[in-house]
Amino acid sequence: MAAQPARARHPTEDPAWVKVLVIGLVALFLGLVLILPLAAVFAEALRKGVDVALAAITTSDALAAIKLTLITAAIAVPFNAAFGLCAAWAIAKHDFPGKALLITLIDLPFSVSPVVAGLIYVLVFGLQGWFGESLIDHDIKIIFAVPGIVLATIFVTFPFIARELIPLMQEQGVSEEEAAVSMGASGLYTFWRVTAPNVRWGLLYGVLLCNARAMGEFGAVSVVSGHIRGLTNTMPLHVEILYNEYDFVAAFSVAALLCLLAVVTLVLKSVLEIVQPDVKRGGGH
């Protein structure tokens, strides 16, 4: 057997110093921009001890903000899941006039500043808005109330699930559906038994991303919320208020909780990628 050179490297591999340099740069960048601030959040939150931090996130205002955030996500995410599935199905599996326009519209929330998204709702449903007077007449409150917050959140998180599903469904094509229909399956049966199972992992992935954003949305929600403590403050808004009042420990405690929710989401996402390696490629087994 021929002796192996001491430091054999794969023929297509870069020299070691290149790898060290590139990986080092990435690590440095991530550390400075991502990990350091994240660590700072937790450090600040726990500066005066765990008890103080816990107390800060269990005040009635904080609990109300947590509750509102969860309610908002609980409404916005299923809504966008249903819409995303419908839109992706229509776009990927069918041809119809205005398809290109629909695809562009789905991307609109990504390209519009969240503040503008919030203002749109104020303009439409606000006191001086188009429907403002008739809403007051019927005693319906949308702006500076929970419905407005939910609407704004839905708007901002609109594209996440649809964007995840459209390329997946397009790649899968329509031949499985054609096969099902040619064997006598109805459209609905085909959707539940053939289309939906093929995109379930992609859907779950989209739901996680959508959920993370729904809980964290600040700009659009800030415009429509009115910042009424204990009533229309979501967690991100609550953090801002506490911070502006120089209550840093409380602000960072709530922020840390928000980060934890995000971290849980990301962990779930990674677990999903490990148990289901073809999530990004799509498909079932």
Partner: peptide, 20 residues
């Protein structure tokens, strides 16, 4: 008439088997 009404058996190019 629809494919189902014609009772055709169709084998697709990439088979289009139901993966799940």
């Amino acid at each position: 008439a629809s494919a189902a009404a014609r009772r055709v058996g169709f084998v697709f190019q990439q088979y289009a088997l139901f993966k799940h």
